[in-house]
Design a protein around this nucleic acid. Structure first.
Lengths: 191, 191
DNA sequence: CCTAACCTACCTACCAATTGGTAGGTAACG
DNA sequence: CGTTACCTACCAATTGGTAGGTAGGTTAGG
């Protein structure tokens, strides 16, 4: 019987499997709350086997973040033209909200991890500082030029979305889309 | 020389000192991110000394949460009458916001910990589920009766405040009060 | 007052479990 | 048959927690 239970995969495939598993686990328990062994076990392998693909636990985290960097707000704005008016901005952001609704585990990952990474000693601290600042800047310049106070609008929008995501994770019965529309009705009202 | 460096305190005083230190530390690094030894060191004592006052690390967490339970939203609403109209509600919530601004470390504690506690395995998970649900219910009943959709309003308000706090911790340059007023101008607009 | 008894806040020393990570061997595939 | 994906076995460091002794403060007996 050659059934040694040992699964050998091409590196790219294995890396992807590991990153997917790590994403789920970190999304639930945070980076500090989960161990290297747990990442490995979720892929049916050992710590040592996993460390053959990623030299350290921290490298797994980096991999997870890089892998989903395109799920950025910037990704939704993409190469689209700057939004010249409220209606266009609302449409673009509603697309973002809808898209996020279909990516629960990644949204959860970012929510949990960005809170944990408030600690300056956290390995993802700098990553989130950079990333969130540039998101805000792009939002301000390219999405809220029509707004009387673009900087404030960008902060308010990100705050509301972050907070709603957090509360939605606490209580999945919250109707995310309905809450968004109610907020947007006032936020994008001109005049 | 009697300078043994050993400080002996009455239990109530020591407990308070420990809880204050633990509050700061958890607020920075989360509960998983900090060790019993760190709590103790912050009070100039040893793990074992600390465990004389709290039987386990988890009991310290419970102590921290109980100690600040009155910083609840409910505390601000307090025994005040239900808010019958938008203006009254806005005034009450503005008081809450101002009060929180002066309690940074405790606000930070709740923000960091409530995110970490999304994990069902976290020792504070149930605490936060209970607490946030009752906050929302009270808000809905006693603060937003005037609103066309009280339940949605409660969710939206808590989401915005949570998110703004999170973003304010990431970037202290955010003008919390100004952001609040901008949000409130629309949120409490009647008609 | 003074000292001896005693309570208890606190410490040193230790423990088992878990952590992230290494060294070197084994087995699957081209 | 060689490359390399993966494993077994180990390591030092850190974790939460325990056992038992030490020292500071209080109080009773003289």
């Amino acid at each position: 019987m050659t059934a040694s239970g040992r699964r050998r995969l091409p590196p790219a495939e294995r890396r992807e499997e590991i990153l997917a598993a790590a994403t789920e686990l970190i999304a639930v328990s945070g980076f500090n709350g989960v161990s290297l062994g747990a990442f490995a076990a979720a892929c049916g392998m050992t710590k040592a086997g996993l460390l053959h693909h990623f030299p350290s636990k921290e490298h797994v985290l980096v991999g997870v973040l890089e892998r989903r960097d395109e799920l950025d707000i910037a990704a939704v704005m993409g190469d689209a033209d700057p939004a010249p008016d409220a209606a266009t901005a609302r449409a673009a952001l509603t697309r973002l909200v809808r898209r996020n609704l279909g990516q629960e585990s990644v949204v959860k990952l970012y929510t949990v991890l960005s809170a944990e990474a408030l600690d300056p000693a956290h390995p993802a601290h700098d990553y989130f500082r950079r990333r969130l600042r540039t998101s805000r800047d792009r939002l301000e310049r390219e999405m809220f030029a029509w707004h009387p106070w673009p900087g404030g609008a960008a902060v308010e929008l990100l705050a509301f979305l972050d907070g709603l995501q957090l509360n939605w994770l606490r209580d999945p019965e919250i109707d995310f889309l309905a809450q968004w529309e109610a907020f947007a009705d006032r936020f994008f009202a001109e005049g």
